[in-house]
Write a protein that binds this DNA or RNA. Structure first.
Lengths: 224, 224
DNA sequence: TAGATTGTTAATCGATTAACAATC
DNA sequence: TAGATTGTTAATCGATTAACAATC
């Protein structure tokens, strides 16, 4: 019978979900190696950098193609190039921030997004008072202009930095405007239609998951 | 032969990973229902709210115990109580922010963490100039005092808001100080020892995963 | 050749889901 | 009783991993 985890049909577009999640982790480690001047890496070394085991590294990389050399290892530069291409890391993915309040302003000024390849290309807000102001070199536009703004700046990722009450509306507008991914900082859970194939991360949910783990650790009691 | 997904041994502490990840999603939906005055919910209704299917809801909830009533559904209030207890949501989990730069300040002032049950209880920084300043009612302490600060304020979650170069050091200090979870905003990947059972989320990695999805969508080409 | 390391196989494990008996 | 819905089973699916043949 055919193996359950069969090879990919096409290179870009059919990686196992679990592999996709680990790719950026490998990527970071590889970039560090490249910066250190390392040119070759074994699955074992990369595994240690990424905090997984070597078999998983080899399996994951095999989905990208046979890019290693038996007895030698993988070429760091080539792998950076390949994974970078797959992650879309070579071309930056412009980000639009919805909400120019305290958090929105701070995220706009924060160079972390840009440094990660996600430059803040646009900021929108519903408040006419802040529309037109410049934050970190970007002029705040009105949220009603979102479809136009997203098209103009080719924004692929939307960041929701609104109060909780406005978050779902912001998400709906981002989806309608055509962004492909949403990172939600508002302290509420938002939903996206599941037919648009859009990826979403709720920070509040991440926090709750973190909360679970600290709680479980703290609670030694095993109640019934 | 025994089933692969067997019932839990003790109530708190042995839920399947995948269930834990969905629990906060159910929780949010249930809180909304409770606020609307709804007292009973079926697995089908909850599934729609959470964006999963009804079988998964029932399976997940069955790990918590038999809290439903056949032919009727689940008691919303009771479920909120149970899941809230498991997530540690009833008692807030104090957060310490490392780094009082632009992002650190903004996150400190942002009420989103507090609203999610993660009040900012402490802020530390390495720069003597900012130590002693007050941000959103919290006095910035020196990062060298982190172990004392974490103990005093019972911080369970650490948020890293430093420049990339300082992020790993911040994480190491947080781990040493005894926090249980770390949320890393710095534009770099950090590592934690895997023997401490600590939960970590790198925002940069989340962004890269988001990037992958938008990239894949954009690239219709199926190359070889 | 001998040593090293990949790429792949196949066993195992955990998660998902349809189906349905139990039961309110 | 009839209708509704849970809790559980068992089939299926995808992910993990040890092992090893291939091969540099």
């Amino acid at each position: 019978m055919a193996a359950r985890n069969d090879p990919p049909a096409d290179t870009a577009g059919s990686l196992p979900e679990a592999t996709v999640v680990r790719l950026p982790v490998y990527f970071r480690g590889l970039v560090e190696l490249a910066e250190d001047g390392t040119t070759t890496v074994s699955s074992q070394q990369l595994a240690e950098l990424a905090g997984v085991n070597a078999a998983k590294v080899r399996k994951d990389l095999s989905y990208l193609g046979s890019y290693g050399t038996r007895g030698v290892g993988y070429d760091v530069g080539f792998l950076v190039q390949q994974i970078g291409r797959i992650l879309g890391g070579s071309e930056p993915a412009p980000v639009v921030i919805v909400g120019a309040g305290n958090l929105g302003k701070a995220l706009s000024r924060y160079d972390g997004f840009g440094a990660s390849g996600f430059p803040v290309a646009a900021i929108v807000d519903a408040d006419p008072v802040v529309v037109g102001r410049r934050i970190a070199g970007v002029t705040v536009r009105h949220v009603d202009e979102l479809p136009k703004v997203v098209k103009e700046s080719c924004c692929l990722v939307g960041i929701v930095a609104t109060p909780a009450a406005a978050a779902q509306s912001a998400v709906d507008r981002l989806v309608a405007a055509g962004v492909r991914s949403i990172l939600n900082f508002a302290p509420t859970l938002v939903t996206v239609p599941d037919d648009v194939g859009l990826r979403k991360v709720d920070l509040a949910t991440e926090l709750h998951i973190l909360g679970y783990y600290e709680h479980r650790r703290g609670a030694t009691r095993a109640t019934g």
